[in-house]
Nucleic acid binder design. Structure first.
Length: 390
DNA sequence: TCTGGGGTCCTAGGACCC
DNA sequence: TCTGGGGTCCTAGGACCC
């Protein structure tokens, strides 16, 4: 497995396209740092840090606004190199992917040779530095690339997996963030070796069944997940920061309308439909709530989706009045499966049996002899089902 | 030092079905 | 009058990732 990860992606694209930025600390973003060049990272600037704090840490910092079209174009070019490298590519985000090169020995050489060539190709064809981790499993390859950054290549040799893994801090494990790390530290668990030796039951008790088992497996380098080609996203969303202070409800509604418009446009461009609309709100105190609504039949109708979104906002309005609203977001999920072109329906597994059972009970209880069966496709208020003759 | 925008996956309770 | 066991789906919240 190869894990290929572009270094400081957005910032690197900026430095590639503007020679005056090379060798200087660069941050992409404004209010918040979206990406920092290695020169900026050297003075402590980090992704997700506020712009003000970043400037304090690094007085020479050059802050540039994002040029997302350029990043998308660069990403496309890099993924073309990936596609030329292996038919088994799984994109993880705009700037990283897994490549399964296990079957390419005869035609392309060893994984290390393939990885070296990949780095050269990305450098020559796209002008960006990329770090590659090579290991027998996805997880280990990802850890290897993280350790090898920037502009590196790291191979975890077969048989040496646990020696490589065990001394690393728990934060290196995929799925350990701030909260889990704090829980683990509280129990004196600091390294991967500590996690591995703790035992699965103790981890499950601490972190829940899924996370506990997941972590235990990773700590023992058990990661059977294959590279999955052509994964489709499960949701499409958008959000907008509103700034502090009070906002007129009309402005909030207008923001939501704009958001829905943008997101539905992307839904259409992807040629997909959705069944669930989720409204996200965030408040002054960083508290957040979500409100969602699902319809039975997937739709891409912008009017219908906007109506649902506005209704969710109306329902959430009482809490908006009490707490300062700072962010509004919308997400469309339960996307249809585009392979069949058929919207995915809930209850799809056994509707016929359910209907037969209901009919049997009607006969039994009421002695009904003529029964009309219909299929109800919606349950929104105001929706009426057509009745069909038996 | 309170901050962007885009996502995935898991958990838990409730309603409902056989 | 009261109870088993196996499931799906929806909703809300939370952790985590880039």
């Amino acid at each position: 497995m190869l894990h290929a990860d572009l270094d400081s992606f957005y910032a690197s694209v900026e430095q590639r396209d503007d020679p005056t930025l090379r060798g200087r600390p660069v941050a992409v973003g404004g209010g918040v740092v979206l990406a920092a060049s290695y020169e900026a990272k050297a003075c402590g600037v980090r992704t997700a840090m506020s712009g003000r704090q970043a400037r304090q840490l690094c007085p020479d910092l050059v802050v540039v606004p994002g040029r997302f079209d350029a990043y998308v174009a660069a990403s496309k070019a890099v993924f073309e190199v990936f596609a030329d490298t292996s038919p088994l590519v799984e994109g993880i985000s705009i700037d990283e992917a897994f490549l399964d090169v296990g079957g390419l020995y005869r035609i392309a050489g060893s994984p290390v040779q393939i990885a070296s060539r990949l780095r050269v190709q990305v450098r020559e064809r796209v002008g960006l530095a990329i770090t590659v981790g090579v290991a027998p499993t996805k997880f280990l390859a990802k850890v290897a690339s993280a350790v090898a950054k920037p502009d590196g290549l790291l191979v975890v040799p077969a048989g040496g997996e646990l020696d490589f893994l065990r001394p690393l801090p728990v934060e290196r494990l995929w799925g350990v963030g701030r909260v889990s790390a704090a829980k683990l530290h509280g129990r004196g668990v600091r390294t991967v070796a500590d996690v591995a030796d703790l035992g699965e039951a103790a981890l499950v008790a601490m972190l829940g069944p899924a996370a506990g088992r997941h972590l235990f497996a990773l700590a023992h380098n058990h990661d059977p997940r294959p590279v999955v080609v052509g994964r489709r996203r499960g949701s499409i969303g958008g959000q907008r920061a509103l700034g502090h202070g009070r906002h007129a409800i009309g402005d909030v509604r207008a923001a939501l309308t704009g958001l829905v418009d943008r997101v539905v446009r992307r839904l259409h461009r992807a040629d997909r439909e959705c069944r669930t609309v989720t409204l996200r709100l965030r408040f002054d105190d960083m508290g957040r709530v979500t409100r969602s609504h699902s319809v039975v039949r997937a739709t891409g109708d912008s009017t219908a989706l906007l109506q649902i979104a506005q209704r969710l906002l109306t329902e959430a309005l009482p809490m908006v009045y009490d707490r300062g609203l700072t962010l509004i977001g919308i997400a469309l999920s339960n996307l249809d499966d585009g392979d069949t072109g058929q919207p995915e329906l809930p209850f799809a597994k056994a509707p016929a049996a359910a209907l037969d059972g209901a009919i049997a009970r009607l006969r039994e209880r009421f002695g009904a002899t003529a029964i009309t069966r219909g299929v109800l496709l919606g349950r929104d208020p105001g929706w009426s089902a057509p009745t069909l003759p038996d």
